[in-house]
Design a protein around this nucleic acid. Structure first.
Lengths: 205, 205
DNA sequence: CGTTCGACATACCACGCAGTATGTCGCTGT
DNA sequence: ACAGCGACATACTGCGTGGTATGTCGAACG
């Protein structure tokens, strides 16, 4: 009777996929709910049945982006490894995740600023806080490794916040310029993963 | 009779400053023309007298951002220097420029994606093209140095596009997270310039 | 087999905001 | 002193869009 939880969940993720793509292509503010619905071959009713508001939909997409990367990087993190090697593995997993869930990640980084949507309902503020919390949790994965590397003398001893923000931004950079879909042989993505991870690691030592 | 060119120019830059701040604080799409006008103590009439449309105003702000950094970095570039030293000077100048013209640069990086404002007037497309051209010209400053450094064996031999995009994104990163205005002693900004430039350089070799 | 309920579709409203048409005021040239 | 123009202010409109209220339809109950 109630494995239809899977049904609603499937419908939700389908909506999220369409929303992520619309927001990616048109921009979060330009894309309308009707645009998302039209891509689904549906109408607004379906979306507003699953999400309270447009902001809620956007927040859901952003939260997914964080969860995707976290789920990709968390498992490969291994603190028994030397910090530099550990970091490289994490960086590679992160970049691969960004490429896999491109639309979500692009929306996420494009909404990092300008979310000052003034007076939002308490319901919304909770979601925002949830995202910030998830983001912080994810960043702390790197904060650990950076501190360990600095203590071990493997990384330059720099301001941790500056280092963290700079390196994470660099790892997210493909979401800003990479154009997916092209005759884009898998090979280039591997080159991208290899070289960008090396650059990120190089920026630390 | 016509040094009032200076007058209109002064009024325009005043508008641009207000627009950059509004767009930075509220987001480009959320901020309305009326918001910008209100910040100036004026009305829409003044803005629409100097700019054909809102998109034209946004484009003007973005173009200013590129010009600011170009004017800051161009003069310090010295190809007689070894590539690594040359790059470091350019990076430092770039970061300093980002901090100086923070609002403009923040708007610029926040509008890097999502400018697919579908059917825009030819007038607008010209502006867009002008911005892309200026951006390319600026990026070519770095492309030169990267190639020179790779040829000289000072930098790792990597895909130039990947390297360029990654490094420039990293140099622009402060526009995404840095919060100006705080009890922010000048000292931190110097630390930021020093350490971020070092990281960018480190990512190359 | 009637009832209920979830998952949407349809039709509609309200409003914010870009853009415009028109008015006003001060300066400048002649 | 009058014409003309530049630099705005004021008042107004139209449309896009977020949100809602209501209808429909099929599938799970009992």
């Amino acid at each position: 009777m109630d494995i239809m939880n899977t049904d609603t969940s499937a419908s939700k993720t389908e909506i999220l996929d369409a929303a992520a793509r619309c927001f990616m292509e048109l921009g979060v503010n330009v894309a309308s709910i009707d645009d998302v619905a039209h891509r689904l071959g549906s109408t607004k009713g379906r979306i507003y049945h699953h999400f309270r508001s447009k902001d809620a939909l956007v927040s859901a997409v952003r939260l997914c982006a964080v969860q995707f990367t976290h789920q990709a990087v968390g498992p490969v993190k291994d603190n028994t490894l030397p910090a530099d090697e550990n970091f490289r593995n994490m960086a590679r997993a992160h970049i691969a995740a960004v490429l896999s869930h491109f639309a979500y990640c692009k929306v996420f980084i494009n909404t990092l600023s300008g979310v000052t949507t003034k007076s939002l309902t308490p319901q919304e503020q909770v979601l925002q806080q949830e995202i910030r919390q998830a983001t912080s949790a994810y960043e702390n994965l790197y904060r650990d490794v950076l501190r360990a590397g600095m203590d071990a003398g493997l990384f330059q001893d720099r301001n941790v916040s500056i280092t963290l923000h700079s390196v994470v931004t660099m790892l997210n950079a493909p979401a800003q310029w990479y154009v997916p879909g092209r005759p884009d042989n898998e090979e280039f993505q591997q080159t991208l993963i290899d070289q960008l991870a090396d650059m990120a690691l190089g920026s630390l030592r």
